[in-house]
């Protein structure tokens, strides 16, 4: 009943062919429980970003299995996969999360609009999501009018405006100063407790990873070690 919200089983991902083939992932097993916050760390090129792309269905595995919210991504057609990305999985990247031509409020409401939610309801839910991340003013201004930290908060609001099982975050504090970065990761770390959302954070900053329930270390395309999860009973153990 506590099935993992994200499960990678013996995942291999290669780029290129023959002598130029690169194995970005070389047999990764990872299970993330509902409401678990997992940080993935490792040197550049260890495969951590590839792992995130596969988890979000942005790329296909070469072999192995990726299950998100109980569904095998490999079994989904393009349309279902797009739907999965709209409804179950949210993203927060290092930068360029927001569309510059939309206001803060419109950016947050975008996933609802794509789902066909009515204007009034979309607006109300977006305001709630923005309040949840602590952005309550100047919502009709454009992303460029906000500081980097505020922009990330707005991006997180957009990720939670739809009830998501999983949020994938790729260096969301990478472009921020230490204190602002801390506050963004602290906000992320509060999501599992408040909304039951699981989070996979890719970072190379130990201080940001320390907010997570579990830190997973990768090297050369494999998971080499991990800290014990602080999330109680769970399928987290399935990763080992």
């Amino acid at each position: 009943m506590n099935d993992p919200v994200l499960e990678l089983v013996d995942v291999v991902k290669t780029f290129g062919k023959g002598s130029t083939e690169v194995r970005a992932l070389n047999g990764v097993d990872l299970a993330v429980s509902p409401a678990e916050f997992v940080a993935v760390m490792g040197p550049s090129g260890c495969g951590k970003s590839t792992l995130l792309h596969l988890a979000g269905g942005l790329e296909d595995v070469s072999s192995g299995r990726v299950r998100v919210a109980g569904r095998d991504i490999g079994d989904l057609d393009l349309a279902s996969r797009a739907a999965l990305r709209r409804t179950d999985v949210g993203y927060v990247f290092q930068r360029l999360n927001l569309l510059p031509s939309l206001t803060a409020l419109e950016n947050v409401a975008l996933p609802l609009k794509l789902e066909g939610v009515g204007r009034r309801e979309a607006s109300a839910r977006s305001l709630d999501a923005l309040a949840a991340v602590g952005v309550t003013e100047q919502l009709s201004r454009y992303p460029d009018d906000f500081s980097g930290g505020q922009q990330q908060r707005i991006a997180i609001a957009r990720a939670i405006v739809v009830e998501r099982a999983l949020i994938l975050a790729d260096e969301p504090s990478g472009a921020l100063d230490t204190m602002t970065g801390d506050s963004v990761i602290e906000l992320l770390s509060s999501l599992p407790g408040r909304f039951g959302t699981a989070i996979v954070l890719v970072t190379h900053e130990p201080r940001f990873a320390s907010w997570a329930d579990r830190v997973v270390f990768m090297r050369d395309g494999v998971v080499v070690d991990q800290t014990a999860s602080t999330v109680p009973v769970s399928a987290a153990g399935a990763a080992t």
């Binding site: 760390m41 990873a209 320390s210 997570a212 830190v215 270390f217 070690d225 800290t227 014990a228 602080t230």
Partner: peptide, 12 residues
Amino acid sequence: THQRTVLHSMLQ
């Protein structure tokens, strides 16, 4: 690898 994990647990 092991020491890194230990330090991270401490940091957490």
